[in-house]
Design a protein around this nucleic acid. Structure first.
Lengths: 217, 217
DNA sequence: CAAATAAATTAGTTATGCCTAATTATTTTA
DNA sequence: TAAAATAATTAGGCATAACTAATTTATTTG
């Protein structure tokens, strides 16, 4: 099928396009993969030749049907292996990702289906992300505001309700953006403020107003 | 640590040296890996520079301590994954090898130890080959003649007791050599002849005399 | 033992997938 | 809007790990 590297690019484009706009910039991909933008261009050309993506100079990359299917499949394999590593081999939440990065490329494709069955068809990976089914259908996660999330739950930012500069710059200051994973540590009854754990482990408390302005899934 | 390719070469050298002499020829490695002899030479030089093997022009390759340890570790990982694929994912005897070829390279090394524990510290893989323990110690398999093998058991040829040309050329004709896997299908009471299944699925019947001349493990 | 055969080696090539440095486009922003 | 900053692109290179073709070294065998 596709090389490991091609799969990694497709996965990155998929994840980035899930967040922001449809067209994914070269820089975004380069940052996501830790590669040089020049290398990204090389690969985008290759993926275009294979009809996996649409890409024209200066515009961003966008997945074609076949590329999308391949990307979702990689995500599926990745998340299934994460469940395996966590549930069966007792790896911690933090360790599973890196190992799954390798396991996600193992062939044949029916390996994922067997693993899926063996694991009891899990719907979410250890990070709370939904696992696409064998047909590539992604659970559509219900969107809600951060204020509705229960204590201890993990969610990720999917949109903002308030687009004021004040709110956006505050988000930027907190290093929260579309896609950021947030864990709700505590909900303060007194004023409905919410204590959050950031992906890097930093703990922040945000106000009720803030929590009601952020859409998560 | 080492690249996938390096690991594959080390594993090959290990397996080949387990059978015949200590020094493994370029051609043997090339045949085992399906690579060109020229490619093998390139890699032998690289492995020599890394002190993983000893290799001088025209002589064969021999594993150094570090290379041996790495090779045994790859074998261990390979066989553990085979057990997983067979026992947990219900793959057939025949399918597990190819998939394990990929899985054996996944890092970190402690993945194998966790898998080992999870599988209940199995001693043999689905082909009947012993699984090295975490310290790299290989179960020393007891050698016996083919005639002593029970019905249904899998074994592999480790030596010949009879070195006559007649016997050796008969072996060659049957395509049986050192390392060949044999499955004992049936033992005929009448004359103690043995019905064998070859790795390619061909069924052959051999005499008592033959079975007593072949050392297996 | 010398010719024939087989094995080992060298030299040069290729495809992947990455890189740096230099250049060109596009956005920002003053 | 023009200069500055950021992003995209091109050109050229490098390492890995394979290859082919030509050559040298070893081993068989007549």
């Amino acid at each position: 099928m596709h090389t490991h590297s091609e799969e990694n690019y497709l996965k990155s484009i998929f994840k980035l396009s899930q967040l922001g706009r449809k067209k994914v910039s070269v820089k975004a991909i380069a940052d996501a993969l830790g590669n040089n933008p020049a290398s990204v261009i090389d690969m985008l050309k290759k993926l275009t030749d294979k009809n996996l993506i649409t890409y024209e100079k200066t515009s961003g990359a966008q997945l074609e049907a076949e590329g999308l299917a391949a990307a979702v499949n990689v995500v599926r394999r990745h998340r299934l292996w994460e469940v395996f590593l966590k549930e069966k081999l007792e790896y911690s939440w933090a360790e599973v990702h890196e190992i799954a990065e390798q396991l996600e490329h193992i062939r044949p494709l029916d390996l994922a289906d067997r693993l899926d069955k063996y694991l009891g068809f899990p719907e979410f990976d250890p990070h709370g992300d939904p696992i696409p089914d064998a047909k590539g259908k992604l659970q559509d996660t219900k969107r809600m505001t951060l204020s509705e999330i229960e204590c201890g739950q993990v969610c990720r930012v999917v949109a903002v309700k308030d687009t004021s500069t004040d709110f956006l710059s505050y988000l930027q200051q907190l290093d929260i953006g579309i896609g950021t994973q947030l864990t709700v540590i505590e909900k303060i009854n007194f004023d409905n403020s919410v204590k959050l754990c950031m992906p890097n482990g930093v703990i922040t408390t945000v106000s009720k107003k803030f929590a009601e302005s952020l859409m998560v899934a």
